[in-house]
């Protein structure tokens, strides 16, 4: 199955990624940096901890992983052939 988004045209997401980004709640201090750099709004802060809402519009840019000061975000590519794709990059 392939998904699209009204907010981000010209990009398709092939299903089957699974949760390729994970937050280690024990390490997270709720600083909010991940919510600031993620243009797809994949994160929110609930009770002073980051929570992953959805990876449906994730562009696999890894900014959340780079920015987390506590190394609380575990990031690895989704399985081959899944996730975002575009002809216009």
């Amino acid at each position: 199955m392939v998904k699209t988004s009204k907010k981000f045209p010209g990009v398709k997401w092939i299903e089957g990624t699974g949760e390729f980004i994970k937050i280690d709640i024990k390490k997270c201090t709720g600083c909010g940096s991940c919510t600031k750099v993620c243009l797809a709004e994949c994160f929110q802060i609930v009770d002073k901890k980051a929570e992953l809402m959805s990876l449906d519009e994730c562009m696999e840019c890894a900014s959340c992983w780079y920015i987390c000061p506590e190394d609380a975000i575990d990031f690895f590519w989704p399985p081959g052939g899944t996730g975002y794709k575009s002809n216009w990059g």
Partner: peptide, 9 residues
């Protein structure tokens, strides 16, 4: 006309 929006680091 906007055709696509995406980002990368």
């Amino acid at each position: 006309k906007l055709r696509a929006r995406m980002w990368e680091g």
